[in-house]
């Protein structure tokens, strides 16, 4: 098969696939926040409250409890 044809088809497929991924990601971001599963905006605090003594936004150990 002609390489140009493969490229063309692959390119089209890729665009469609990526569009799905992009919208999927946006939906994921907003939906998981709506459902209360996670709050992305709280991660912004990581820069503001970054003393060594301040509690982590999400400590490593408690991870399993939190994300379920």
């Amino acid at each position: 098969m002609d390489i140009r044809l493969i490229q063309g088809v692959a390119y089209l497929g890729l665009i469609i696939f990526l569009t799905f991924v992009l919208y999927g990601y946006i939906m994921h971001l907003y939906r998981s926040e709506k459902k209360g599963k996670r709050n992305y905006e709280k991660y912004g605090k990581m820069a503001l409250d970054d003393e060594l003594t301040s509690p982590p936004v999400e400590p490593l150990e408690e991870h399993t409890k939190e994300s379920r």
């Binding site: 990526l18 992009l22 946006i26 907003y30 992305y40 912004g44 503001l48």
Partner: peptide, 28 residues
């Protein structure tokens, strides 16, 4: 800038979600 601007101004990033989205957009 995602660290120093919020830190210096005391304001969290306007939209953390937007920062994630534009990260992947930029990478790609």
């Amino acid at each position: 800038i995602y660290y120093y601007l919020p830190k210096e101004s005391g304001q969290p990033v306007y939209s953390y979600k937007l920062s994630l989205l534009s990260f992947w957009g930029l990478m790609f």
